[in-house]
Measured scan of single mutants.
Amino acid sequence: VTLFVALYDYEARTEDDLSFHKGSKFQILNSSEGDWWEARSLTTGETGYIPSNYVAPV
């Protein structure tokens, strides 16, 4: 499992996005959609889309 960590805070703009804070960790579920990845937050357990340029591999 590849884990990613948030580099910045992000406020969701749609109900499909995940809001998160810098330092939040994610499991990436689908990275084939270009700049928006489907991810599960390891902090909240919620699933949604995150901007790929806001995260980096742990």
Results as ranks from 00 to 15, higher is better:
V1K: 11
R40M: 14
G23P: 00
A39M: 05
D17W: 11
P57H: 06
D9E: 06
T2K: 12
W36D: 04
Q27R: 07
E38L: 15
F26K: 00
R13M: 12
T2R: 11
N53S: 14
T2C: 13
G34M: 11
S41Q: 07
I28M: 04
S31T: 13
Y49V: 07
F4P: 00
L42R: 02
L18C: 04
Y10R: 03
S31M: 15
E46Q: 12
A39S: 02
S31H: 11
D9R: 04
H21C: 14
V55T: 03
G45H: 06
A39V: 14
K22H: 05
S52V: 08
L7C: 07
H21V: 14
W37P: 00
V55M: 09
R40K: 13
S19A: 07
D9K: 04
R40Q: 10
T2L: 13
S24C: 13
Y8H: 08
Q27I: 15
N30R: 07
W36K: 11
S31C: 14
V1Y: 14
T44A: 03
S52E: 04
E15S: 13
F20Q: 00
E11L: 10
G45C: 08
F20L: 04
V5G: 02
Y54R: 06
L42V: 12
R40F: 14
G34L: 12
E38K: 11
S52N: 06
R40S: 06
T44I: 02
Y49Q: 08
Y54A: 12
W36N: 05
F26W: 07
V58K: 04
L3A: 06
G23S: 03
K22A: 12
V58S: 07
R40N: 06
G34A: 14
T47G: 03
G34Q: 13
S41D: 15
N30H: 08
F4R: 01
S19E: 04
Q27C: 11
I50G: 00
N53D: 10
W37T: 02
Y54I: 06
G23K: 01
F4T: 03
A12Y: 02
D9N: 08
L29T: 07
D35F: 13
S24E: 15
E46Y: 07
E15Y: 09
D17R: 15
W36F: 10
V5I: 13
S41N: 15
S32C: 12
V5K: 04
P57S: 07
L29K: 05
V58H: 08
I50N: 00
L7S: 02
I28S: 01
P57L: 09
G23T: 02
E11T: 13
A56D: 05
R13H: 10
A12M: 04
E11V: 14
E15I: 10
T14I: 06
W37S: 03
F26I: 04
F20R: 00
K25L: 15
G34V: 12
E15C: 12
Y54Q: 05
Y49H: 07
T2I: 13
E38Q: 12
E46L: 11
F4A: 07
V55I: 10
E15K: 13
Y10M: 02
K22I: 09
K22G: 04
G23I: 03
Y8M: 09
L3E: 09
S31I: 11
F20C: 03
F26S: 00
S19M: 03
A39I: 04
Y8K: 08
D17E: 15
R40C: 10
W37K: 02
T14G: 15
T43Q: 11
S19I: 02
A39E: 01
S52D: 02
S32H: 11
S52K: 13
D16F: 15
H21P: 10
E33V: 11
Y8D: 06
T43E: 15
L18Q: 03
K22V: 10
G45R: 03
E11F: 09
S41V: 08
E33G: 14
P51E: 02
V55Q: 00
K22Y: 05
N53W: 15
D16N: 15
D9V: 02
Y49C: 11
T47E: 09
S19L: 01
L7V: 07
K22Q: 08
T14S: 14
Y10H: 05
S52I: 06
G48I: 04
T14R: 15
P51C: 09
V58T: 07
R40H: 10
L29S: 05
Y49S: 06
E33T: 12
G48F: 04
D9H: 06
E46F: 07
V5N: 02
R40L: 14
E38V: 15
L18F: 11
V1D: 13
Y10N: 02
I50S: 00
D16T: 14
L29I: 12
T44C: 05
A12W: 02
A39H: 01
Y49P: 02
Q27A: 09
N53V: 09
N30G: 10
R40Y: 15
W36Y: 12
S31G: 09
P51H: 07
G45V: 02
K22L: 05
L3M: 10
S24Y: 14
K25G: 05
D9I: 02
E33R: 15
L3F: 11
